[in-house]
Nucleic acid binder design. Sequence first.
RNA 1: GCGAUUGUGGUGAAGUGGUUAACACACCGGCUUGUGGCGCCGGCAUUCGUGGGUUCGAUUCCCAUCAGUCGCCCCA
Length: 442
Amino acid sequence: MIYMYQKIKGTYDLLPNDTKKWQSLEKTIRSVSKIYNYEEIRTPIFENTELFHRSVGEETDIVSKETYDFIDRGKRHITLRPEGTAPVARSYIENKLYADKLPVKKLYYMGPMFRYERPQKGRYRQFAQFGAEAFGSTSPLLDAEIISYAVSVIKALKIKDVEVHVNSIGDQESKVMYKEALIAYLEKDVQTLCSDCQKRFETNPLRILDCKVDKDTELLKNAPKPLDYLNEESKTHFNKLLAYLDAMEIKYVIDRNLVRGLDYYTHTVFEVNANLETLGAQNTICGGGRYNHLVSSLGGPDIPGVGFAFGLERLMFALESVNFKGTPDYLHLYLMILGEEQKEDGIRLLNRCRIGGLFSDIDFLDKNLKAQFKLADNMNARFIAIYGANEKAKGEINVKDKDTGKEITIKSSQLYNHIITELMNPNHSCETCEEDSCDDCE
RNA sequence: GCGAUUGUGGUGAAGUGGUUAACACACCGGCUUGUGGCGCCGGCAUUCGUGGGUUCGAUUCCCAUCAGUCGCCCCA
């Protein structure tokens, strides 16, 4: 070959083996979403560049240096979405979902996001997120529900060793007060911090709190914390949240240093970390919080919201470490037609089985018997039917049940009925069980 | 954006400045188009990510580039 194309840096192909696991993951996510009564929303993967600048924050890395931007043929400035909250908020406003008969709109989404970052484990340039947004209530109960929803997804996936970290950065007023206090406190000693923190001091001082390099220094240990600067309202909100979490029996730790990177957060912020070697440094699988002014700052009515986002690749890694398996592939029937003269009649038999819903396949390469048996094996076929000249002459067909090893010859017209009957037999093996799971499968 | 490290067939991998590039699995063919999973026999990298340089000669040394991995940053 002259030139081999390769995938774009930071992207990946999901091959059939992988898509099975992903489908299973998606299925679990959807069923938990149903339990919490969240409805799916799907927005475009690109939006006006401006949307992300307004919402996520001009100074954040993800907007200032990580977006995929382009200008389309109509000279529009377009950005591949780097996160899901802003597009959902935009859609919420544009479609006037606040006027819906459901005053609290609970939405979830799943799909690809794009950030121009240096790829590493659990971090890709095109990656998938599952996220939820609930609009229309300032009640801390909604914050608690969102956290509960996220935790339930993790539980449903049987991921252990997770920690929920919560914190409050307060409302707009508290945020401003805290920021001033922090800056005043750090001002004279900025030079003692790491070089990254010195930059952060100018751009996003809150993030100094969770710096890995400086976190153990006396300066940071004694630094003012957002929780100490909450006004009464913010304090009440946070305390109620904690009470509701207790009522929901959700274990959490209050992480006084937890801040989030995106500008739109107010009050509650939280993260879910998984302590798994397979995740490496990328151990935050879920992050979220409340954003009371995002909708209004995007030109909508003054409506609050709260949400979270999961990184699905990281979830997949976490699943691998708990030996999560998708449903195994199998076939009901592998039909071996021997001889060109038998093909058309054989195809009729195959077709009948397929119309009846049997998972069926056949050879396309005129392989010999041995090779076809091997193929049937690789396809994990339960029944192998052989249709050759002998059978055709007698109107019969030979059927082998791989589960029992028994082989019988029946009227070829009975092929479908025979297989169906056998499949209904409760003594089935789980490898070929028709449901996604049965009692024996667990 | 910064730092480190790796790159040999479908896969896992050994290996050397000089010419047949181990081995294992997978795959293909034969013994055996009418019964696979075992066995035996045979096949399967004109080529060592790509481009350039050093050299009589490079997969092996050097440079560049692309990609992967790990960490920082950031974030999910």
